[in-house]
Design a protein around this nucleic acid. Structure first.
Lengths: 245, 245
DNA sequence: GTCAGTTTTAAACGTTTGTATTAAACGGAG
DNA sequence: CTCCGTTTAATACAAACGTTTAAAACTGAC
């Protein structure tokens, strides 16, 4: 199969690099279509058409469609998760040096901020958070497998550090609070500047500031939520399931 | 493949029963497959096979696949949203009667509890919350359209009442906190008792109690989050986007 | 210019999709 | 029994899917 040497030698073209251009054109087109249509609905025909390459190019460069999804996610999630892990370990190291427990707020921020900052990176990466938010709940098994494989180290470290930051809270409880954090963030990336959510029955959220405003809102919400005293609110009267009339 | 018709029906029961049985068998099969595979991936062939009816039955009874999805959602979301709206209006009425502002906690509970209670209703409705959680982020436009049409009244009332319960908080801010609530709940319904999330890189969350425990966790998390003071946490050092290497 | 290797192209592959068609089987009413 | 509206059944259909193939068009090195 046509696996050839690195593009370092092919730089000698007439302003070319067309060889590596095809790959990135495909990646860009796939990222945009995966974001807007979803993995399953974005056909290889639509992707190659948008990328301006031949139909067979995806199979030639990536093998198959699943490998393309993996490459699309890897391009963004690779450096993104590296940044998350670096920041988290830095926070943990500093807490240990000072002999204090980990603080929750920087942990949440280290998890969420790098992802959302991509939104205003200007480049083609700006669409990735929405793609990722979509992928987090995508029904397709392929998508789930790809996402989980790349997120596993982050998940593990987050669970560990949230546990450290919340002494006395059971592992089970920490697990669920982390899930709520993920859910809130995933929803935010899907809704943020997605025109489909404006006219679809939800009130206009206004000018909604920049990404930093959204990050602050997410952090303050999830921080308070994760630090809340556990379910002392059972005092409420029993809620029954809706009886079918 | 053979015939796999449901046990003990047909001639046995009185007339007219079998006619309605085919419809509900299709609805049940579709609900289960939509939950486990997603709308797009659940083919009409798989649905009809699971329901034990002929391939053409879906088009005969519902017209097309989209109308089937609408019927599946309507069967559950209809009474569910009625229960939500009834409870919310009841809360609002009582607050007005007492001349006090609306309390947030019952509002959140009225929104989330009826949905999650379906999980332990025992019947075929138990799978619907996961379906709904999936649908909330489903990339398919058809799914989004169907869901939003049915959720619109609930969304509007929730935004209004959360606004009442949070005086001094801007509409924009309320909008986002409501989105975070939705995200956390959607994630919870997807993860709860979904075996795919156990071995997929996330630590085992333990016995995890019943649905009531999950509801309490969700309510306490989102209540604290929604009541949190807005973004005073900007003091943190600037987080940069992960530089692509 | 020749040649090996890489990339691009057009066409076809075999499935699978949702839906349409047409005829057969059914069940009470006359 | 016949008749008629309803339901089930087997099959056909056109379109779209991901993937494969084999030949053409390139590329840079000799």
């Amino acid at each position: 199969m046509g696996r050839q040497t690195a593009p370092a030698e092919s730089r000698q073209l007439s302003a070319g690099e067309t060889a590596e251009d095809a790959r990135t054109h495909i990646l860009d087109a796939a990222e945009a279509l995966f974001e807007n249509e979803g993995y399953r609905a974005a056909s290889v025909r639509a992707i190659t058409a948008k990328a301006g390459v031949n139909l067979a190019a995806i199979n030639y460069y990536f093998g198959n469609k699943e490998a393309l999804l993996e490459a699309v996610c890897h391009r963004r999630l690779g450096p993104l998760n590296e940044a998350r892990l670096r920041k988290l370990k830095e926070i943990r190291a500093e807490a240990r040096r000072r002999g204090r427990k980990v603080e929750l707020q920087p942990v949440l921020r280290a998890f969420m901020a790098p992802a959302l900052m991509l939104k205003e990176s200007g480049g083609s990466a700006a669409g990735f958070p929405a793609l990722f938010g979509r992928a987090l709940a995508d029904p397709d098994d392929t998508v789930q497998r790809v996402i989980f494989k790349m997120m596993k180290p982050v998940h593990q470290l987050m669970l560990e550090m949230m546990g450290d930051a919340l002494p006395g809270v059971s592992r089970e409880e920490v697990f669920w609070r982390y899930q709520f954090v993920i859910g809130a963030m995933a929803r935010a990336t899907r809704v943020y500047k997605n025109p489909g959510f404006k006219g679809a029955g939800l009130e206009d959220p206004g000018p909604e500031g920049g990404v930093n405003t959204l990050i602050d809102r997410l952090v303050s919400f999830t921080l308070a939520g994760a630090q809340a005293a556990p379910g002392m609110n059972i005092k409420c009267k029993k809620n029954s399931a809706p009886e079918s009339k």
